[in-house]
Design a protein around this nucleic acid. Structure first.
Lengths: 110, 110
DNA sequence: TTCGTATTTGGCCATATAGCCAAATAGCTG
DNA sequence: CAGCTATTTGGCTATATGGCCAAATACGAA
């Protein structure tokens, strides 16, 4: 793998890696609905606040979310909603897998 | 997080996690062009064959690729090409980030 | 069956991740 | 300034990952 190629794939992998965690996927969907502060997300995720804070910093570091301080809260928001298309793509993959599964089952019953 | 919700997010995360590695992204693109055996992919990736074999098993386990034995080779192929749309989505995110970056730079120069 | 090629598996190590708790920090608001 | 609330950071542990090497396995062909 050449260097230029390598760094292109690394950049992509970084985005995917940041999304590749159940709690972070939940956070992304939640933020798609509306911006939220750490407190609210913590409640939603059901983990320690420090854990949620770290998840948010992963997302921020990947450029997927941004934060803004207002009053005495830090509000997090999705940086680009195209991320949701993404989840749509994942669902397509899952659906395709399910279809295959059905097909296999049917062919077994014959 | 409720149980049903949790397993939905876990299923999605599994797919993303399987893709979230530079070598695996390369493999996916390579397989999109045409099916390949481990040998060929090993050469392309530039890692130990055992390493590539393990990457392939991760992809297979996530349902992203399938394998078929022919002659004395095992050929791997993409299970659904919608995975490529996926990479397109990642590129959109990267592009959006780059745009933001440009905007910030411009506003600094003012 | 025996050889040889293709692939996977197991062992091992180094590094990364996720989680919690406790402590530190930030920054309103009185 | 002092207190309070929101958030982050550091420390620690357990587990997972990625990499290579060496060994095991699978299987077609002679």
């Amino acid at each position: 793998m050449k260097d230029a190629e390598k760094s292109r794939y690394e950049a992509r992998a970084k985005i995917l890696k940041a999304m590749a965690h159940p709690s972070r996927l939940l956070i992304i969907e939640e933020l798609h609905k509306q911006e939220r502060c750490v407190n609210e997300l913590t409640e939603r995720v059901g983990a320690d606040m420090s854990t949620v804070s770290k998840h948010l910093s992963v997302l921020k570091n990947a450029g997927l979310v941004m934060d803004e301080k207002r009053a005495n809260c830090i509000y997090y928001a999705l940086r680009c909603s195209c991320i949701l298309d993404f989840i749509g793509c994942v669902e397509d993959v899952l659906a395709a897998r399910a279809d295959d599964h059905q097909r296999v089952l049917k062919s077994c019953k014959k």
